[in-house]
């Protein structure tokens, strides 16, 4: 291998490891105002600490390398040497104190910037369950609330206030590309502000261990242009689509008569359960079961047929359905755009 190929390979390996820093879930790939603040802070701290580390190791190397000038005993120092030592140690302590004080001031500044929230912010309520996210939008104009789950649409460039609650245990709301973490705690309300700077799909994840399926408690934040967001909200406010063929109609009937409707709501039908996610527009969401599977008719059917194999311990029971009933229900749910 020539030195040139080696160099190219090394550069490639470096570039490859850098790809780990980008993507739809990375604090190092900031697309939100708050994440950018945090990224600036962590970059500043890492750079300063790197310089300190190099200086300390340099001093250590020099001390190891330098020969003693003579066979003098450590205690055998004159007042001049003593003074030099005092100055060196005091200034090292002083510099350390200053660096830490600067870090403290910088993180205080960043924290203040994070909690800054303009009054025109959109409010989204997020409630954590084992193991999914209930999302509801409050429209101040119409006073209507728009329930959804596991997928949060936000207008890009507009600040959004997330009001966080938990139904059972402590969860934590974290969209690394957009902002820092905030816990969802049963019995109290927390808030976090997020402003996506550009349109895109950002993945979020529960960041506080909350039980068996903590890892399968993901969500999507979809930042859209304001016009697109309005169109989405208008569509979501509609009742569920009516069945368009006999199979879907049969699926609707089965959904309403079996245990499904006891936990799930489909607006526009008598199904009004509140224990599980609202399914009015389930087929418009990109994943089901909190980021576990892509939303397809097949995955819907697989999930209904055996939720405890796909996500053991979740609260959806295996409702006994015959094969043709399963086909009909999955056809109906897949039609709920």
């Amino acid at each position: 291998m020539t030195p040139r190929t080696l160099r190219v390979l090394a550069a490639l390996a470096g570039a490859l490891s850098c790809t780990g820093c980008s993507g739809w879930q990375s604090a190092l790939d900031a697309h939100g105002l708050q994440a950018a603040h945090l990224l600036r802070l962590i970059t500043f701290i890492v750079v300063v600490c790197t310089v300190v580390w190099i200086l300390v190791l340099g001093a250590l190397a020099v001390a190891l390398w330098r020969r003693r000038s003579g066979p003098s005993e450590p205690s055998d120092t004159g007042p001049a040497v003593e003074r030099r030592l005092t100055v060196a140690v005091s200034s090292a302590v002083a510099v350390t104190a200053v660096v830490i004080a600067v870090f403290t001031a910088a993180s205080y500044q960043t924290t203040r910037a994070l909690s800054d929230l303009p009054s025109d912010a959109l409010t989204v309520k997020v409630r954590g369950y084992q193991w999914w996210w209930e999302v509801s939008y409050q429209d101040p104009q119409s006073g209507r609330t728009l329930p959804s789950a596991n997928e949060i649409h936000v207008p890009a460039g507009r600040p959004v206030r997330f009001v966080l609650e938990a139904a059972d245990v402590i969860h934590s709301f974290w969209v690394p590309s957009l902002a820092g973490k905030q816990d969802l705690i049963p019995g109290r309300t927390n808030e976090i502000a997020i402003m996506a700077q550009r349109a895109g799909i950002y993945r979020g994840q529960c960041a506080e261990f909350c039980g068996l399926q903590h890892a399968h408690m993901a969500f999507m934040v979809i930042a859209e242009e304001p016009a697109q967001f309005e169109a989405w909200a208008t569509a979501q406010l509609q009742d569920a689509a009516a069945p368009t063929n006999p199979e879907q109609e049969r699926g609707r009937q089965i959904f309403l008569t079996k245990a499904c409707a006891a936990c799930h709501a489909i607006r526009g039908t008598p199904a009004a359960g509140t224990t599980g996610p609202d399914l009015t527009h389930i087929a418009s969401r990109s994943t089901i079961a909190a980021g576990l599977l892509d939303t397809t008719r097949g995955s819907l059917a697989a999930w209904i047929a055996d939720p405890q194999t796909l996500k053991p311990g979740n609260n959806m029971p295996m409702v006994p359905l015959a094969a043709d009933e399963l086909r009909a229900v999955s056809a109906y749910l897949a039609s709920l755009k």
């Binding site: 055996d306 405890q308 194999t309 053991p312 311990g313 295996m318 006994p320």
Partner: peptide, 12 residues
Amino acid sequence: ERVLRIDPPVAE
């Protein structure tokens, strides 16, 4: 032991 998934024939 937690039985998270009960076999359908057992459930029946």
